[in-house]
């Protein structure tokens, strides 16, 4: 949030301010925060372009920092847990810390990629954002989670697939940087769902055949048990209720959403490549499919559409099969999977 008001009004409740002051915490205005973030990002980008960086990249270790927003809409308000520090009395803080660790570990171990930028950038996580805020987001620098409204969603920081989804948006930003609109935006969402599901399956020691392929099923409100945000196995069937409406995801190009809402359907049309991933993973196993998808991501352009995504993925599949890193049948399986959704 930005402070436009000429007075010194603050959204943080006075009792929270008092408590923070007692603890010696100075509360920066969001305006200061935003300026500092921008300056830090500019400095980081300048460094990444510099010769010194290319010769000797700075040593960062993807350290986790968890901040409590204290139900305000301020990010990085109160640091409550950091890498190797003691656990917090707040279970939500510890859960999101562990979940971010699991995501970091998967990317590092299976994909040889460290943090969101592959240079070990700090992983910043904000919890208890807003009042009954039923959402989570990546904002270019960090992840932020609301407590949920307890109707549609419970606490969004509690689900591994949601943390993996948001962190993957960071990875996409630093790799293909897929434009968040239309088909490239749907691919951006698709990649976030892919690694949300893949990392959940890995943590639960599931195989493609036994996984539920649902995203967000663990954060659904009490009246929505059994439903989810998305189904990669059967797009369009994740939810159907009075609170959320009906899942609008297509599973075939014949039903591609062509409207302007949702940035041109980024959360809608992602159902089509999601289905392709499910089919390929079922044939060659999830971890192999994840590797293929990740290697493809590194070759995509910001404007990649579904058709050029298919071309890029088949090319990488052939290369990886020749190198023996995915099964020999992968290219054929992938081609058939794309064809089955009309691509």
């Amino acid at each position: 949030m930005r402070n436009h008001c000429p007075c010194s009004c603050h959204i943080i409740p006075p009792f929270v301010v008092d408590k923070l002051k007692e603890a010696g915490v100075e509360i920066p205005s969001q305006k200061t925060n935003n300026r500092e973030f921008r300056e830090r990002r500019d400095a980081k980008n300048a460094l990444m372009r510099s010769e010194a960086f290319l010769v000797a990249p700075p040593v960062k270790k993807a350290d986790r920092f968890v901040y409590d927003s204290k139900t305000t809409e301020h990010q990085r308000l109160l640091l409550v847990r950091k890498e190797s520090g003691p656990a917090s009395p707040d279970a939500v803080v510890n859960t999101v810390y562990e979940n971010a660790g699991s995501v970091r570990e998967y990317f590092k171990t299976f994909l040889n990629y460290l943090s969101v930028d592959n240079h070990g950038a700090d992983l910043i996580l904000n919890v208890h954002f807003g009042k009954n805020y039923a959402n989570a987001f990546w904002d270019g620098d960090e992840m932020t989670f609301g407590d949920g409204d307890n109707q549609v969603f419970t606490n969004l920081a509690n689900a591994l697939d949601v943390t993996a989804h948001e962190l993957t948006h960071g990875v996409v930003q630093y790799t293909a940087n897929l434009t968040y609109k239309g088909q490239s935006g749907a691919l951006n969402e698709h990649y976030a769902d892919v690694f949300g599901s893949v990392i959940k399956q890995h943590a639960k020691k599931q195989k493609a055949a036994t996984a539920d392929w649902l995203i967000g099923d663990e954060i659904m409100g009490p009246a929505l048990t059994g439903q989810a945000l998305r189904s990669m196995k059967a797009p369009g069937t994740a939810y159907n209720n009075a609170l959320m409406g009906k899942d609008p995801q297509p599973d075939h190009m014949d039903n591609l959403y062509k409207g302007s809402a949702d940035n041109g359907g980024v959360h809608i049309n992602s159902g089509i490549p999601n289905k392709v991933f499910f089919l390929v993973a079922t044939a060659i196993e999830t971890d192999k499919a994840a590797l293929l998808w990740f290697e493809t991501l590194k070759t995509l352009k910001p404007t990649t559409n579904f058709k050029s995504f298919k071309t890029a993925l088949l090319k990488i599949a052939k290369k990886m099969a020749n190198a023996g890193s995915v099964p020999a049948t992968t290219e054929t399986v992938a081609k058939q999977s794309f064809e089955s959704v009309g691509l």
């Binding site: 949030m1 436009h4 008001c5 969001q30 990010q75 989570a136 990546w138 904002d139 989804h165």
Partner: peptide
């Protein structure tokens, strides 16, 4: 911003109309 909310406000009186759009990270205090 990925997965964040976009808020659009329109205030109108007579012929004057004010339109404002914010995201989760640009919502004024």
């Amino acid at each position: 911003l990925r997965d964040g909310y976009q808020y659009r406000l329109e205030i109108r009186e007579g012929r004057k109309k004010v339109n404002l759009t914010f995201g989760d990270t640009t919502l004024p205090d």
